[in-house]
Design a protein around this nucleic acid. Structure first.
Length: 287
DNA sequence: CCAAGGCCTGAATG
DNA sequence: ACATTCAGGCCTT
């Protein structure tokens, strides 16, 4: 029994370090052997075995451990490129994060870089979020949508987000008005959910796909940023031909359809493995 | 529907 | 030093 369990854990083990360091989340830091991070109105402490302690005891399947991980790996392993990436980061997971924080995070991310995104989000939390102590450390929860919807553009700008300040305020208004309900988004299809959130200012194709993949359970979502385009050109130039320099909405949609046709319904996982691998190849920094 | 240009900011590059 | 480019894009023309 014990042997079986340990074997299972090796097979299914979650790589906390690499999952957090893969461009999905930003308000995380390591202190001694634990990772600490803000997830909406909650703070989490995670050890190397992915055991989670939550400040508010919210139930969250942060690492999507109820996903059939082995099945997903089999499903996306269509070629050597993905297989190599999976072999390199076998415990890399898609993280299920707080939807509002995720939405604002990726609005902030556009035309930016990880270090700056992190700083911007820390500023937003510190300025507008509730200060709280957890495990003898200070944290600032991510602000509620109401708070940000009532904040002035200038105050938001002080967080260093520039022209995105207006997007943040407008997005927060829409979110807090419940005009778009999270449960609906989770329940409807990828296409419908995407259509809905793309109406929010500051959310285009790429940002929408990040939000859908990292907080709304849409695993066929496949965010196409500069890195993924580069990866497709490098490893999949015949299969996914990219005709133009700038990817238009229409081309993005066609490309995404081809990608899902090829990688299947868990294409988002394939994206995460490829992204992680290529960024590491170029020794890009994470948090 | 497509192409081009502007945009806050700050670290990296020349 | 100082200017220019570039970075997980989006929006307008």
């Amino acid at each position: 029994m014990k042997k079986l369990l340990s074997k299972m854990q090796i097979k299914e083990s979650i790589d906390v370090e690499n999952s957090i360091n893969s461009g999905q989340v930003f308000l995380w830091k390591k202190n001694n052997e634990f990772w600490y991070g803000v997830n909406g109105q909650d703070v989490l402490q995670i050890d190397e075995n992915a055991k989670i302690k939550s400040l508010k005891n919210h139930k969250t399947d942060f690492f999507r451990s109820s996903d059939d991980f082995d099945g997903i790996i089999k499903s996306i392993s269509k070629d050597k490129v993905v297989k190599d990436a999976v072999k390199k980061y076998p415990g890399l997971r898609i993280i299920k994060q707080d939807p509002f924080q995720c939405l604002i995070s990726f609005i902030v991310s556009s035309n930016s870089n990880i270090q700056k995104i992190k700083t911007n989000l820390e500023n937003i939390s510190q300025k507008f979020g509730e200060r709280i102590e957890f495990k003898n450390q200070e944290f600032f929860l991510f602000p509620e949508s109401e708070t940000l919807s009532n904040a002035s553009i200038n105050e938001i700008k002080k967080c260093g987000v520039g022209y995105r300040a207006n997007f943040i305020k407008e997005a927060s208004k829409i979110f807090s008005s419940k005009e778009i309900a999270i449960e609906d988004l989770k329940n409807c299809t990828y296409e419908d959910a995407k259509k809905k959130i793309c109406k929010i200012p500051g959310i285009g194709n790429k940002v929408a796909d990040c939000i859908l993949l990292f907080s709304l359970d849409k695993l066929e979502s496949f965010p196409l940023d500069r890195w993924m385009i580069r990866i497709l050109e490098k490893y999949y130039s015949e299969r996914f031909q990219i005709e133009t320099k700038t990817i238009t909405d229409k081309q993005y949609e066609i490309l995404h359809q081809k990608i899902v046709e090829y990688f299947g319904p868990y294409a988002g996982y394939a994206q995460q493995f490829l992204f992680k691998m290529e960024r590491e190849n170029y020794q890009k920094r994470w948090l």
